[in-house]
């Protein structure tokens, strides 16, 4: 754990949140503070400790392969911020590799 400065712009890009310069400054400082608190974890010896992703150890919870009713199309499309016919419409997608 290092206390290096977070590249807030990069992280915000990954998270798809537009930030103003002022926000970059403010969040950068706040996140830096938080990371300093969080870095206290470095004092714990966790080398031989397994990670806990979930506290209750269930296994093999599976659903039977049986069809259940879908939502009606009106219900689905009624919420669309923008639609075209039966499709959701989004602005131009920049090609991704």
């Amino acid at each position: 754990m290092s206390s290096e400065k977070i590249d807030v712009r990069y992280v915000a890009k990954l998270a798809r949140i537009a930030l103003t310069d002022e926000e970059v400054e403010r969040f950068g400082a706040q996140l830096g503070d938080l990371l300093e608190h969080v870095n206290a974890l470095g004092a714990l010896d966790t080398s031989a400790v397994p990670a806990t992703a979930q506290v209750v150890e269930s296994r093999n919870v599976e659903r039977p392969d049986t069809v259940v009713p879908c939502l009606s199309r009106e219900t689905v499309m009624a919420q669309a911020p923008q639609r075209q016919g039966a499709f959701f419409r989004v602005p131009r997608i920049i090609a991704e590799g």
Partner: peptide, 9 residues
């Protein structure tokens, strides 16, 4: 991952 391990402790 470190946080998940701390969670175990």
């Amino acid at each position: 991952v470190r946080a998940q391990k701390a969670r175990t402790l």
